[in-house]
Design a protein around this nucleic acid. Sequence first.
RNA 1: GCGAGGAUGGCGGAACUGGUAGACGCGCCAGACUUAGGAUCUGGUGUCUUUGACGUGCGGGUUCAAGUCCCGCUCCUCGCACCA
Length: 848
Amino acid sequence: MDHPPTEPRDDGPRAAERNERPGRYDPTTLEARWRQAWKDQGLYTVDLDDSSRPKYYFLTMYPYPSGDLHVGHWYAEAPADAAARFRRMRGYNVLFPMGFDAFGLPAENAAIRAAREGEKVHPMSLTYERIDRMEKQFEQMGAMFDWSKKVVTCDPEYYRWNQWVFLRMFERGLAYRKESLVNWDPVDQTVLANEQVIDGRGDRSGALVERRLMPQWHFKITDYADELLDFEGLDWPEKVKTMQTNWIGRSEGAQVAFQTEAGPIEVFTTRPDTLWGATFMVLAPEHPLVPRLTTDARRAEVKAYQAAAARMSEIDRQAEGKAKTGVFTGGYAVNPVTDERVPVWIADYVLTTYGTGAVMAVPAHDQRDFEFARAFGLEVRVVVQPEGAEALDGATMAEAYAGDGVLVNSAPFDGLRVGKEGAQEGIGRVIDWLAERGIGEKKVTYRLRDWLISRQRYWGTPIPVVYCDACGIVGVRDEDLPVELPADVDFLPTGQSPLTLHEGFLNTTCPTCGGPARRETDTMDTFMDSSWYWFRYLSPHLDTAPLDSRLAKAWAPVDMYTGGVEHAILHLLYSRFFTKVLRDLGLIDHGEPFVRMRNQGMILGEDGEKMSKSRGNVVNPDHLVEAYGADAVRAYLMFIGPWDQGGPWNYQGIEGVSRFLNRVWSAIAAPTEEAGVQADTATLRELRRAVHQAIAKVSDHLEGFRFNTAVAELMTLQNALTKAKAAGAAGSPEWAEACEAMTLLLAPIAPHLAEELWARAGNDTSVHLQAWPVADPEALARDEVVIAVQVGGKLRGEVTVPADAGKEDVLAAAKASPNVRRHLEGMVVVREIVVPGKLVNLVVKPQG
RNA sequence: GCGAGGAUGGCGGAACUGGUAGACGCGCCAGACUUAGGAUCUGGUGUCUUUGACGUGCGGGUUCAAGUCCCGCUCCUCGCACCA
């Protein structure tokens, strides 16, 4: 099953040839040697108590241990490593840790598959094997990960603290159990959080999600909805902030009660100003008042509709362009402002999970209500007339009018300007009036729902509660943590968690009364693990608390977080929530986990398609490293294009980068035979200028995560080096400076090659411990500049003038240029534009 | 439908606050070294009817000057999508 999907293009003959000739750039042996040396020296082990330098916590999303390191991992982590190394050379004490998000369905599914074939595989041993394999592959990358702080979330020393935090949340009512309509994934045999359902399908299995009523554990993330909308001070991609804002979906409006014989129906509306136009009501089919409102004459039809709605999947129910359906209950409610009796309908376009599960229908001013009214012949009453336009007529209008306008047919408020665009104030006045009369009140509703964390699976953190007949739901005592996963379980393809069948795990005693009790068999969503893991890197083995508050205070929040945008909502929203909870528990004193964030794009196959085994376009990083060396793979991934865009892999592209590294090698490391400096001073000055320009630009690009242009700039410097060497610059102080600068600038991108060149230059401390070079403005200065000369906005020539030439001199030189003179013939110059150091534009018109 | 981002040579992509479009790399062409080269090195390479004209998705506009700013479109990618 593990055969390589693509053959390496070019490893055999070229690699062999390289090995034959000593003195050539041989990444394979050189890189292995340096990785060993770094390990032996502990070069990347961070002293968290070192306060001599400012700290910088650089975090990159930890992977799920699939057992095989993909180029996608390289793409995510190699440029991040370069950015982290750059920070370090800039004088920061940089923490760049790595670990594994080790719980999860794939390992358990593999165990079930194996069991089906009569084999015994445990997710635990499988996961640890895969972690070992991935760690070895990770090492090839030559990244400065501090593995001494590794976190593995399936280890009891980690998940024990998931349980501890859960208990604190349980005590505060932030974790609670509630029967609710949930998303059931029939393939993975578990419930899913709303965030894990994409287009009505499970995000991992792709199965159509079913709706089931089950008692489930939730976290009260909605308590933090408003705080989660505040991104003040966060340097995050705009896209991620927008996605989270939309997900939380805050709506301001009013809650209004409509009286019925069966009791009041509460509705939420963002347009209480249109209450006078509410001509009917619509409830979700699951609304609790439906049975009592329904008249006997309508009961059979209502029940049939409810049953049909329950059978339908979420995807069918919300299908695009679906025509409105619904049935009349036979019941009526009283519109509280008009005192009219309005019919109560049920329809599946009203969602039971949003707001109160009931709406007041204002067909003239809401498109959905309008469509429903037209479908069933209900009254459309206009209460908002647009200003400066033809008056609307409920009988003839073709669509709802949702814009701003003036109230009509609305007793005390006729003439009031209302609307969401510019007349919010009018809506506020109506709400105040409703509140004074006890009809309604101001209300804020969110789309965000509480985070459902129960999973009916084995391979996760056991939820640390027991069920006691006498005491109810009781949390496990802290001293009895962790509640460990039993190792002796059988994985049966029954769709049942092995925990529910394990008597030794199930039976326990109640911590309160000591009587017999049964353990909870649900485990936690694995997003629980990733919601606080970065704190654990600081003290991975601490056994008295989830985190070391002193170290957390010193190192958190994370200064830079990198990873894929696919986590924009799930992981990143949960992590923000968790950080606020940990703050409220008094463990830390900040509320946001990640100050800065950058997302990388996706690396595609050579055909521009997403890499997949079935397409056969998977690029294998191990083979590439064998053929070109880790530095070339790193540098090519950075060179491929803007990091946040991703892009297709190209085998010819990596050849180019590999050639570049070879040229650096032969320019700097290869012995020069010519004795003495042949180059003239102009050449040496030009070399120095190129060096300092590269320093300035590479610094700027790395600072801005523009790895592609950083590599391009190094290539430009290399071309200057080649040219200078050919002109006999070798042996000069300028040449030595250039070689040193090139080596330092290359260090974050190609750490092995840079280290080798640094050592060959006679240094005995690592290049990665050196200070980043600083550009000398004097070296950048030129004494002559080339000025472009335009006539009438079109380029007609170039002139070289002294850098400090005055405007008149520049103009004179420009006009003297032969081609320019030709274009000025028969013309009058009407305007002269001089952009210092750049260009001259002579605006002309025909003579006479 | 709503929101965000994008469209530049044969290809991946550069271009700071408007100021010589195409940096850098790939590919291609020519040459050098070679028994040979898919290795290495050197030079060239936007298009065309080449003293010049035309060129940054399309159509307008502002400006001495527009890939960049403004107005109106087309297409692509991503996210959300009956949220009251």
